[in-house]
Nucleic acid binder design. Structure first.
Length: 570
RNA sequence: GGCGCGGUAGCUCAGUUGGUUAGAGCGAUCGACUCAUAAUCGAUAGGUCGGGAGUUCAAGUCUCCCCCACGCCA
């Protein structure tokens, strides 16, 4: 039995994620996790919320709540929505957990002991009114180059000139609007990534089966300009993991916290500790420590392309630099962006459909199917309401849902609500079994290699094969002259429903669970042998005719939703 | 400005190391069927593979230049 450790990029705590975020990491990760479990493999599937940093502090202030309280609430909200989408995390943790605090401090201590941390003194803008140091992008002022009045501290959006906050004329805080800013000296820790360039390069070079998108991004950062740069891993903030050297104080760093990008990936590991501490499992080390049983673990990470540098370089630098035997990622599946109706989905601008809104419109399966079958794998892809409507109606309602309906209703009207007796399989049945054997094999291969769109395509073809079979043998005609033969045909078709429920569950878990209920079986065993699998429901086995498995999206709904989501979320 | 990814049938996309008449689904048209959620099944039509030049016996597939869209970075 193979062992799969699977993590999804952890969503930021600040607000509800949109469908583009969902399809870029959590959803395909869930698909893979469900598939591996269905095949009988051991899976640990983890995700968390990423809670530290300035945006969280500001969002909390805006909501007029203490930041820890705000994060706790938003975590609960995201957890509930994740459940709504049937994301089957073994644990949904929090980067603000005590486990992550301790582990982050441990890594910092280990890196320091390895001589990979250096202290840097630098000048940063401090806002007296806000009582905080301001990250560059939170400072605006007049561009000294073009006179644009809302130039950001890092760059002027008007003339694109790269700026330093101190270059700005009349700088002010975008948080409070205050102009009471001053330069202050502050000390920070830097991770000496440059010293690890060769190690990282060798590691990346060994990953010959990674997507080009992934390795090219990594190589660019490794080799561009002066090569991989050292990176600040601390910040002057209140909310975060306090800077400590393991369990000891870090002289001179009192009151500072680690940078969110340092502690966030460490949460992947800490999350497994949370999983154990929550009483959901045991032995987190056998997933993460190669000296304690993680040797046979295959670790796969899922993320959007914007997260690739951190997962290919920064986090590996942390792990490798510690000198400890931690499990490194084996496969890194990255996604492009999903666009919305001709533009980008945007959290900050409230553009597009957000996860909570989607669930108010339709059950999770509809979204899961469309998103996964249109996952932005090779390039950016686009969500349009019309495509969504046509796709869902055709695939789910017509091809799969109607198949279930025609088979169960035919059986009820000509025989009864039990699997009918009589007749035997012949050439058409053998042809179907042959086709399904080939197609299921292809489906398994695509799922194993995480080719999401192709998996969906193959699954759809498997559904269509059932309709083709029915059309070929036409039990409604056979029944008139040879009821026994019609019984054999419909017996196979009824078994196909269970067969489909098992194969399709990674994509559309709820509908498949309800199909299993209708067929009154709990046998979810994967069809290793197609013929045997299609004999699972024996003669005389009772079933019920299900309610409409997938309803259609009407033109009116489609138009209404298009209109409703044309603006921005407020 | 640099880098990256794309530009293939009306739409969404596949096209392995260059090799016979460029593929799929949807949509369209025609036909079959009537068990079913006006569902299903079959057939047909639709592309000078962004433009140009080059390498080759042979290029959507390699090289160079250009155009367009998007993204990232400075």
């Amino acid at each position: 039995m193979a062992r799969h450790l699977i993590t999804s990029a952890i969503p930021y705590i600040n607000g509800i994620k949109h469908l583009g975020n969902l399809v870029g990491s959590q959803l395909p990760a869930d698909l893979f996790a469900r598939f591996q479990r269905a095949r009988g493999n051991e899976v640990l599937f983890l995700c968390s919320t990423d809670e530290h940093g300035t945006p969280a502090e500001l969002a909390a202030a805006k909501a007029d709540k203490p930041v820890d309280e705000y994060c706790a609430e938003m975590h609960a909200v995201q957890a509930r929505i994740a459940e709504g989408f049937r994301l089957s995390f073994d644990h949904f943790g929090r980067s603000s957990s005590p486990q992550n605090h301790k582990l982050t401090q441990h890594f910092a201590g280990a890196l320091d002991a390895a001589g990979l941390i250096r202290e840097v003194s630098e000048k940063q803008m401090y806002s007296n009114a806000d009582g905080r140091f301001l990250p560059d992008r939170y400072i605006e002022g007049t561009c000294p180059n073009c006179g644009f009045e809302s130039a950001r501290g890092d760059q002027c959006d008007n003339c694109t000139k790269q700026l330093d906050p101190t270059d700005l004329i009349n700088p002010y805080s975008t948080i409070s609007g205050s102009t009471d800013l001053e330069e202050r000296e502050t000390k920070h820790l830097f991770l000496c990534q440059s010293q690890m360039r060769e190690k990282l390069q060798a590691w990346i070079d060994s990953k010959t089966d990674w997507p080009l998108l992934t390795t090219s991004i990594a190589n660019k950062w490794l080799n561009d300009g002066d090569g991989l740069q050292d990176r600040g891993i601390t910040r002057d903030l209140d909310w975060g993991v306090p800077v400590m050297k393991g369990d000891d104080v870090w002289p001179g760093m009192e009151g500072k916290v680690f940078y969110v990008w340092f502690d966030a990936p460490i949460e992947y590991i800490a999350c497994s500790q949370e999983w154990v501490d929550a009483g959901k499992g045991t032995g987190w080390e056998r997933w993460w420590r190669t000296d304690k049983g993680a040797d046979d673990v295959r670790y796969t990470q899922f993320m959007g392309k914007d997260n690739v540098p951190f997962h290919t370089l920064s986090f590996p630098a942390t792990i490798l630099g510690s000198g400890e035997p931690w499990k490194m990622v084996d496969h890194l599946k990255s996604f492009n962006y999903l666009n919305y109706d001709g533009g980008q989905f945007s959290t900050s601008r409230g553009r597009g459909v957000f996860m909570d809104q989607a669930l108010e419109l339709l059950p999770a399966d509809y979204w899961r199917w469309w998103l996964l079958s249109h996952a932005p794998e090779s390039s950016d892809s686009e969500f349009t309401w019309e495509n969504f409507q046509v796709s869902v109606n055709k695939d789910l309602a017509d091809v799969l849902g109607n198949f279930v309906s025609r088979v169960t209703k035919f059986c009820r009207s000509k025989f009864s609500e039990t699997v009918p007796e009589g007749g035997s399989w012949d050439a058409p049945e053998q042809a179907l079994i042959d086709e399904l054997t080939t197609r299921v094999g292809a489906y398994e291969t695509y799922m194993e290699t995480m080719e999401v769109r192709k998996s969906a395509q193959e699954l759809r073809a498997i559904w269509a094969a059932g309709n083709e079979y029915l059309q070929t043998v036409a039990p409604w005609t056979t029944f008139k002259t040879d009821p026994d033969q019609a019984a054999a045909q419909i017996r196979l078709a009824l078994n196909l429903i269970r067969f489909y429920a098992v194969l399709s569950a990674p994509f559309i878990p709820d509908a498949c669970a309800s199909l299993m209920d209708s067929m009154q079986t709990s046998d979810t065993s994967w069809p290793e042998d197609i013929q045997k699998s299609l004999e699972t429901l024996p003669v005389g086995h009772a079933f019920t005719v299900p309610e409409v498995t997938f309803r259609k999206i009407t033109d009116d709904e489609c138009a209404e939703w298009q209109e409703r989501f044309s603006g921005v979320r407020t």
